[in-house]
């Protein structure tokens, strides 16, 4: 079902046009990279502040709250361009191991966001009241750094694998035809029996 969805999406007029254009793909990829710089930099500042490694004179609330808006713009640019690239070659991405790993890591980002939301991100001002940065805030920052760096590396990895779509399609065709003949099997046998009987008469 997921496979037919990715096949459908890349065959829509919009993504077919995108795939056919020589310039759009590299431009979208470049904008994806620009988004990564803008978003990644903001994530880095936030995480370094939570770890207590920079901007120690600034309150955590200041750094986290004020970078929220530029961070969201960077993420929006990155995700939009990422989705455009996925859509234009959805089936290839579907089979790409690095792409699958990347999606799992992105899901883990959501999980960690959910786990740490109440203790860390919802009320950064509360973190400032503790004499030192609380342990779970530091843990959240370390996990965030690790996950986002891995996601960037997996993203680069996608380009190194080109799933052999022709081979996969051929295999699927063989499987499909085997299944088809197997399901037709008894009927054709019956027909043959009938013919044999008819010829014997």
């Amino acid at each position: 079902m997921l496979l037919s969805f990715v096949q459908w999406i890349q065959l829509t007029d919009f993504f077919t046009a995108l795939r056919g254009s020589a310039y759009v793909y590299p431009i979208v990829l470049s904008l994806h990279m620009v988004g990564i710089s803008l978003f990644g930099g903001m994530i880095l500042v936030t995480d370094l502040r939570l770890l207590g490694w920079t901007m120690r004179k600034r309150s955590i609330a200041d750094v986290v709250n004020q970078l929220r808006v530029p961070k969201r713009w960077g993420l929006l640019l990155t995700v939009t361009c990422g989705f455009l690239m996925f859509g234009s070659k959805a089936e290839e991405y579907y089979y790409n191991a690095f792409f699958r790993t990347k999606l799992i890591l992105l899901a883990l980002v959501l999980v960690s966001e959910f786990v740490f939301y109440r203790q860390v991100y919802a009320d950064p001002a509360a973190l400032d009241q503790a004499p030192t940065v609380p342990g779970n805030a530091k843990l959240a920052a370390a996990i965030s750094l690790l996950l986002w760096t891995s996601i960037a590396c997996c993203g680069r990895g996608i380009g190194y694998i080109e799933p052999p779509l022709d081979k996969i399609h051929a295999q699927i065709r063989v499987l499909y035809e085997t299944a088809l003949t197997a399901s037709r099997g008894p009927h054709s046998l019956k027909g043959q029996d009938h013919q044999d009987v008819a010829s014997a008469n």
Binding site: I36, L38, G40, G41, L44, V45, R58, V69, P70, G74
Partner: peptide, 25 residues
């Protein structure tokens, strides 16, 4: 890639401040 995102992002943080948003305090 990780390092250019890192350094350009931090330069962008300064640029955002010069443009009047980001870390305004």
């Amino acid at each position: 890639i990780a390092a250019f995102a890192w350094s350009i992002g931090l330069i962008a943080a300064v640029d955002y401040r010069l443009l009047g948003f980001g870390i305004q305090h």
